[in-house]
Computed example of a mutant assay.
Amino acid sequence: MDKHSKIYVAGHRGLVGSAILRALEKHGYTNLVTRTSQELDLRDQHRTAEFFAQEKPQYVFLAAAKVGGIQANNTYRAEFLYENLMIQNNVIHQAHINGVKKLLFLGSSCIYPKLAPQPLKEDSLLTGPLEPTNEPYAIAKIAGIKMCDAYRSQYNSNFISAMPTNMYGPNDNYDLNNSHVLPALLRKFHEAKEQNLPNVTVWGTGKPLREFLHSDDLAEACIFLMQNYDDFGHVNVGVGEDISIKDLALLVKKIVGYEGDLVWDTSKPDGTPRKLMDVTKINNLGWKAKIGLEEGIRDVYEKKFKN
């Protein structure tokens, strides 16, 4: 992948895709192709085929997906399975048909069994039942990994997969019904501070442990893998450290400067008890995350809510 290679970033307006686009521009890549979902519906087989035949990208970062938190995943089970399968099936197949030199497929840490040994190693895939609340999304992402491997095996296509941990960063989703835990906490605490509310309610017990990776770190990892990894099987991308939801809430409270109390709604689900990635594989390849959690959250908060 040189500076003039034609690179398609699918999902360039989302949290991950926008970070990849920023990183490519920062590194001096100039021939970047994007389409909004209004311009190109990747669920549409015919239109996706037309796009690839017309543009002929050499490299593809597949960051387009239907995503959301526990509530969205559990509510829209059919859409999460159908839409993600359609997007990745169309893009991966057309990348093969049109001779794309290399494709990077992005998944999620939810591909692993609910009770897989921690930290989560790549070889834990398909060793047990999934977390029920996001099973449809996880199954779609597992299918994507296996699809990349199948095209590599049968056609020698250079298609690789990366599985990031929980993400946060610019262009995140702050809708309280559909967002992930970190942006939801930022919005809740910010609004409580603005409205001088006496307390903030947080879902669950606060006991689950989660790992958080800044999207700018993930983008660097994606470019690194595009340049340095050519093999079967997916690669975990994370920081290798986690934090309890309770401690995360307290950290966000501190960053926002909210003075009220925390209330835990234990009638709401906790989700998986722990999801820490084993990042030995990518660290051994030569990449490590650089952005600390407090530094990253502070930066996101100031850009989103202070400007």
Rank of each mutant, 00 (worst) to 15 (best):
M1N: 12
D2P: 07
S5E: 10
Y8L: 04
V9L: 09
G14D: 15
S18I: 05
A19L: 11
L21T: 10
A23K: 03
L24H: 15
L24T: 12
H27V: 14
T30E: 15
R35S: 02
T36W: 13
R43I: 04
T48D: 13
E50D: 11
F51E: 15
A53E: 14
K56G: 09
Q58L: 11
K66W: 06
Q71M: 02
Q71V: 01
N73M: 13
Y82D: 12
E83C: 06
K101V: 02
K102H: 08
L115A: 13
P129G: 02
L130V: 10
E131S: 04
P132M: 01
G144F: 10
D149V: 05
S153M: 04
Q154F: 13
S157C: 06
N178G: 07
V181Q: 03
L182Y: 01
K188N: 09
H190V: 00
A192L: 05
K193A: 11
E194R: 14
Q195A: 09
T201G: 02
G204S: 08
T205P: 00
E211W: 01
L218K: 05
D230A: 13
D231H: 06
V237F: 02
V239C: 09
G240P: 09
E241P: 10
L251P: 08
E259T: 08
D261W: 02
L262T: 14
M277D: 09
N284K: 07
L285R: 12
G286V: 00
K288Q: 08
I291V: 15
E295R: 15
I297H: 08
D299H: 11
K304Q: 02
